[in-house]
Simulated scan of single mutants.
Amino acid sequence: MKKVLILGGGFAGVDAAIHLRKLNYDVTLVSNRDYFYIYPTSIWIPTHESEFQNVCVDLRELQNAHGFTLVIDDVTQISKKENSVTLKNSGTLDDYDYLVIAMGAAKMKAPGIENTLSICGAPEQSLQIRDALDALVKKGSGKICMGFGGNPKDSSAVRGGPGFELLFNVHNMLKAKGIRDNFELTFFAPMAEPGKRMGPQALKMMDVMFKKLGIQKHFGKKIKQFEKEAIVFEDDSRLVSDFTMFIPAGDGHAVIKNSDLPTNEAGFVKTDDYSCVLNEDGSLSNIYAIGDVAALEGYDWRAKQGHIAEVMAKNTAHNIDQRDNGGSDFKGYHEHLNILCVMDTGDGAAFVYRDEKRAFMLPMPVIGHWLKKAWGVYCRNSKLGKIPRIPGM
């Protein structure tokens, strides 16, 4: 039985482990935390609509369900040349036939970033956001600013959707408490048209929503630094803020940047369409990179999302199996590139879709919110093998 070492316990890593086990590979999964975190549903933790534990799936439960070996440790070094991975506490691992890197991305660090919290950062930050919002609610008024940034070296590393969702949910929370009029809500971003990658229709609808909900906009100015009670822009203008939630753009993982793996300018691992890292002579290596750690090639509007990571994971398992059985029916991720999300608003949602042929946003009042809730239940239980996976999901 051939051995596969997987680095990372997020969407990409967990799905790779599940699919490879189904193909009867000996799989070891290394994760720096002992739970799989369902980021898309973490938007409800700050507004008390969900508890932290409801967004977590114990990796040991997944281990028992699928039969992979689990190691909780930090990756400190990867050597392509030596075919080895070094862990902080467990030493060096080199007894594997294939390496699947699914460690996610680091975050760009703007000056004063410590004065912000991110809904897409370390999972614990969702609880800190909740506590900060609770303090403002107790105070009875305040200025709340939420936004996201970009990476000039890699346009696919932007994640703005959860920022929109969290702000809409906060609006509804404050409205339900009868204190919305006491708060000034502002969405900010350095680009002139944040959300443009979703398509022109979605961009217009977002503008309508901002106006309808009384949310201020501050777009088109680069961020100079974050201060404890303000955001300072390149022209030294200031946006006063009692609480700032900011989603930094993704950046190459430090371990990847310090390795001998091929990377793009931003530090993401270069692969072919089949997620395989190529050798210098163009031949296939035994290393695959999937999810946010990989350099995503394709359209200008491409975005790193969980469902793309899952496609990469499933394809990687298939491609490894093809190689070992003398096949050549490899599957790539490029044909699956699209933007797909249910953008929750707290009292409904909007279905957002874009591919190379079309782009649209479909409002789903009330039912959309509960559909996203249902997806969270599906995500947990399908990964645990308690319910069947829906084809294509």
Rank of each mutant, 00 (worst) to 15 (best):
K2L: 01
G8L: 03
G13P: 01
V14I: 11
V30F: 01
N32S: 06
Y39K: 08
S42D: 04
I43V: 10
N54G: 13
A65R: 05
T69I: 02
D74G: 13
S79A: 05
E82D: 15
S84V: 04
S90T: 14
D95K: 09
D95W: 06
D95Y: 07
D95M: 10
Y98L: 03
V100E: 01
I101P: 00
A102L: 01
M108Q: 10
M108G: 06
A110T: 09
E114R: 12
I119S: 02
G121K: 04
P123K: 03
E124Y: 12
Q125C: 09
V137S: 11
S141Y: 09
F148W: 00
R159C: 14
G163N: 08
L166D: 00
L167N: 01
M173C: 12
I179R: 05
I179K: 03
R180M: 06
E184H: 13
R197D: 08
P200D: 11
K204V: 15
K204T: 14
I215S: 10
I215N: 06
K217N: 14
Q225P: 07
K228E: 12
I231P: 00
D236M: 13
V240S: 15
D242W: 04
T244G: 03
P248H: 02
P248C: 02
P248W: 02
G250C: 10
G252P: 13
G252C: 12
H253Y: 10
D260V: 09
D273F: 05
S283E: 07
G291C: 04
T316H: 12
Q322A: 13
Q322C: 13
D324M: 06
S328C: 10
H336W: 10
L337D: 02
D344V: 08
R354E: 04
A359S: 12
H369I: 02
K373C: 03
K373L: 04
K383N: 14
G392M: 12
G392R: 10
